[in-house]
């Protein structure tokens, strides 16, 4: 009985959750310039505009890709030593570092965005795309920090002792035991940053200083002029990317464990 109600509730939640997404997807098919649902004069022309013809969108898509991949790589590279330090020493310093590293993600992004706007203004990075990459890497570093820490904690400490009794120095143990066992967690962290960077726009708004735009930023900027169906195509693209990425994480990583599920029950 209870179980049945649970399933019905889950289904209802899923419908509400999907509702605006479905509407946006439908709106992408509009023939005219206005967003209506259900779409009028359905056409696929908007997809061509977004991916091929309109340079505003193709440039924005390029910038989004550069920022997302750059930020994901940088965030993982920054998070690894902190997570490793936290795991291997557990020192006070490493705890403080992990806490500070997660700070930008924890506070409202508009505050960090304003701060980074000032910061790049003084250091000369304002409006540079590399500054955007660094900004997103810092903002989202908390995610690989968490996934890598989960991965490290999953390693049996006896494995390290075993390696040592077989002649492995700490460096060799790191390369042959720690690193291979944490690869799935590192990749998950990378993907989390990738997807969230793709979708972030407030921080990007403050650090880009209107000299370049990512896709979400482009949409944000044209907010006051109203939505166009081409933007809906962007939305579809992003949803598809998210679903693909998280499916990959679920397929090759342990998604329930990453989300903190109890390990003793399967």
């Amino acid at each position: 009985m209870m179980r049945g109600i649970g399933h019905i509730y889950m289904a209802l939640s899923a419908i509400v959750l999907a509702l605006p997404i479905v509407v946006v997807c439908g709106a992408a098919l509009n023939g005219g310039r206005t967003m209506t649902f259900p779409p009028r004069e359905p056409t696929l022309a908007r997809f061509g505009e977004f991916f091929i013809y309109e340079t505003v969108w193709t440039n924005a898509l390029g910038n989004s890709l550069i920022v997302a991949f750059g930020a994901a790589t940088l965030a993982v590279l920054l998070a690894w030593p902190i997570a490793y330090l936290l795991w291997s020493t557990g020192s006070r310093l490493s705890q403080v570092l992990a806490g500070l590293g997660s700070l930008p993600f924890a506070v409202p992004p508009i505050v960090f965005g304003v701060g980074l706007g000032f910061f790049w203004g003084f250091t000369g990075g304002l409006g540079e795309i590399w500054a955007g990459v660094v900004s997103h890497a810092i903002l989202l570093m908390a995610l690989p920090l968490v996934t890598i820490s989960i991965g490290l904690r999953a390693i049996d400490r006896a494995h390290l002792d075993a390696a040592a009794t077989m002649g492995a120095t700490e460096a060799v143990t790191f390369r042959t035991v720690v690193l291979p066992q944490t690869v799935p967690y590192t990749i998950s962290g990378f993907f989390f940053v990738l997807v969230l960077s793709f979708n972030e726009f407030i921080v990007m708004f403050f650090v880009s200083a209107s000299s370049y735009a990512t896709v979400t930023l482009q949409i944000f900027n044209s907010l006051r002029n109203g939505y166009t169906p081409t933007m809906a195509v962007a939305a579809i693209t992003f949803i598809v990317v998210s679903v693909l990425v998280f499916s990959a994480v679920a397929r090759w990583g342990d998604l329930p464990r990453l989300m903190g599920a109890d390990q003793s029950r399967n």
């Binding site: 959750l17 999907a18 997404i21 946006v24 997807v195 969230l196 793709f198 979708n199 972030e200 726009f201 979400t216 949409i219 944000f220 907010l223 962007a234 939305a235 992003f238 949803i239 998210s242 679903v243 998280f246």
Partner: peptide, 9 residues
């Protein structure tokens, strides 16, 4: 997927 979807969308 729904969580990561941008506020603008």
């Amino acid at each position: 997927s729904s969580l990561s979807l941008s506020e603008v969308f």
